[in-house]
Design a protein around this nucleic acid. Structure first.
Length: 580
RNA sequence: GGGGACGUAGCUCAGCGGCUGAGAGCACUCGCUUGUCAGGCGAGCACGCGCCGGUUCGAGUCCGGUCGUCCUUACCA
């Protein structure tokens, strides 16, 4: 170490008794007994108690009198064993303390705007003074955990033969997908770069360039509303490999996840991770990112209700239901119906089977014997039905299932469930426009043999896309890509894009596909989501040093901010509503 | 853009259906205290109801708007 410190605060123990040492850190707390003064000295490793005794060091005692919370101090003294009655079992260094000989104030501190041991401080305050928040255990732990995980990810990628290559952040914008952040160019006024939403086309170009296995922890920018799991800028473990099978890509990711768990000293999830088809996920969970830590699976009833006396059932494209493992009062059922309506349902039919075996249901009188028999469940349960178009049924019951899972505390928080979702459709029909839009991105390869469906029956074509889900969070997604130019062009056409448009947007890439593109595929894993889950946080802002708020600003720096007229003139930009 | 919640002291919050000194805990300041570790005891400081407007004899409280924060939804290929 150096003259400031021989040991970090958390490193003191009985083995150091008798040593004369230097220590430095922040004053977590000072307890002044008039004579004796105790100082809890803190750094990133922990806390050690300094004892300043005027009988031993008069100058140090005078200095200690001036010391306040969060001063940075440097002390020199002797490590001594505490008297048996004075041991503090609450801190790892509690068996020893430092009898101070010299004490120096290195930096003073104003009283802090919030107390570091106050767990209840609101997020805006924490972000406004993030440097103070960072001193606290939670952020120290999360950022260190993040660093450990990222190191493990890099190691794993290197071991698996991937090379780290950088791609530009400033690139060509695309009208599809999320909104781009635009970057004006002083040298070419009126033109804009877009900040990369991901290195997607660049990494495919690496494969055409013969790099074979590429990875990068890439920063990505998307101008979309911020959420608990979304920021304007975030990082992806971005990777791509040539001549892969789907299994190989999944294998690479599973290795990365396992390596991260092991680096953190955790029991790794068993491999291979379970798989589920997209169709299955939507049917059973009403979601393409199902949380499978609890049951409450959605049941299909459409066949049974086809000719139902109950008009709502008979007339609906799809009827499905959830069996909740308890009964509900009328009021509770009404609330559940309101919840379903908020998600777009026209109503929520129910059948309550009381503990006594009695049936409460406004629709029971319409149901045939076959229906009643099909829906029969043990006493003390409730069936909740949604009848509507298939996407609406999936949507509403998926939301209701999650809602009930939380409300009824059915989710086993101690479990970790990793899951692959496979066999996505290539296209989904956009409900608003009726046009076919790609589910993932337009570079995803159809399943072999489904190429012709692109033109004949787009809705039936499956893609070689896959998502990695952890406890209901989408960690990332990937696919086997299209490496044949003519297939790529057919996809663009199916989306209603003319050849001219496709060329204008992706011409350089279509050209590259004509010059020897190997089969390739890859994946992108959301780093912050992954780390947040590893850290047990439900919000990625807790694992980001300087996150932005939901409104897209940074309370610490005050960004974003207006700029000057001069800067705008230089860039050839005029504002509709000029600001000072 | 839609829905919900919140905004009172540095922090976290209480505050009646409208009434004559706007509060608590912690923090902070001062004093006393030589074995505390959420130190103890005593004294003190806080002038603040996000902002604008309205209703009223009277508004932290009611109404409208606005700003900010969080959650959620559309959105996030």
């Amino acid at each position: 170490m150096n003259h400031w410190r021989d040991l970090s605060c958390g490193e003191f123990g009985p083995g150091r008794v008798g040593d004369t040492v230097s220590v430095a850190g922040w004053v977590a707390r000072r307890r002044d007994h008039g004579g004796l003064i105790f100082i809890d000295l803190r750094d990133h490793t922990g806390i050690v108690q300094l004892v300043v005794n005027p009988d031993r060091a008069r100058n140090a005692a005078e200095t200690a009198h001036d010391i306040r919370s969060e001063f940075v101090v440097h002390a020199r003294g002797e490590v001594v064993r505490r008297a048996p009655g004075a041991v503090n079992p609450n801190i790892p260094t509690g068996e020893v303390e430092i009898q101070v000989d010299q004490l120096e104030i290195v930096a003073r501190s104003e009283p802090l705007p919030f107390q570091l041991d106050d767990e209840g401080v609101e997020e805006p305050t924490r972000l406004r003074y993030r440097y103070l928040d960072l001193r606290r255990d939670r952020m120290q732990r999360n950022l260190r955990l993040s660093a450990t995980a990222i190191a493990a990810i890099r190691n794993s990628m290197e071991e698996q033969g991937f090379i780290d290559v950088w791609t530009p952040s400033m690139t060509l914008g695309t009208p599809e997908g999320a909104r781009d952040f635009l970057v004006p160019v002083r040298l070419q006024p009126g033109k804009f770069f877009a900040l990369a939403q991901s290195p997607q086309l660049f990494k495919q170009t690496f494969m055409i360039g013969g790099l074979d296995r590429y990875y990068q922890i890439a920063t990505c920018w998307r101008d979309e509303d911020l959420r608990a799991d979304r920021q304007f800028e975030f990082r992806q473990l971005d990777l791509e490999l040539a001549f892969p099978t789907r299994e190989e890509v999944l294998e690479v990711l599973e290795q990365v996840v396992v390596a991260s768990f092991e680096a953190l000293g955790r029991t790794a999830p068993p491999r291979p991770f379970p798989r589920m088809s997209y169709g299955d996920a939507m049917l059973r969970y009403g979601s393409d990112k199902p949380d499978v830590r609890f049951g409450l699976e959605i049941q299909e009833a459409t066949d049974v209700t086809r000719g139902s006396e109950f008009g709502v059932f008979a007339g609906a494209e799809t009827v499905r239901y959830i069996v909740a493992p308890q009964t509900f009062s009328r009021g509770e059922l009404q609330k559940l119906e309101e919840f379903a309506k908020e998600w777009g349902a026209k109503g929520l039919a129910y059948i309550v089977f009381d503990e006594s075996g009695e049936v409460r249901s406004p629709i029971a009188k319409f149901l045939s014997d076959e229906e009643v028999e099909a829906f029969l469940t043990p006493p003390g349960s409730t069936l909740l039905f949604v009848a509507d178009s298939t996407p609406m049924v999936e949507r509403v019951l998926g939301a209701l299932r999650l809602h009930l899972g939380q409300e009824l505390e059915l989710i086993d928080e101690t479990r970790d469930e990793h899951l692959w979702i496979l066999d996505f459709p290539l296209f989904l029909e956009d409900e608003a426009t009726g046009r076919w839009t790609f589910v993932h991105h337009p570079f995803t390869s159809p399943v072999e043999g489904h190429e012709d469906l692109i033109d004949t029956d787009p809705g039936a074509a499956l893609s070689q896309h896959y998502d990695l889900i952890w406890n209901g969070w989408e960690l990332g997604s990937g696919s086997i890509r299209i490496h044949r130019q003519e297939i790529q062009e057919r996809i663009f056409r199916a989306m209603g894009m003319t050849d001219e448009e496709a060329n204008a947007k992706f011409g350089w890439f279509l050209e590259a596909l004509r010059m020897g593109a190997p089969p390739h595929g890859g994946f992108a894993l959301g780093i912050e989501r992954f780390v947040a889950l590893l850290a047990g946080e439900s919000n990625i802002r807790e694992v980001i040093a300087f996150p932005k708020t939901a409104s897209g600003s940074d309370p610490l720096t005050g960004a974003p901010a207006p700029t000057t007229k001069e800067r705008l003139d230089e860039l050839g930009i005029s504002l509709k509503t000029p600001k000072a």
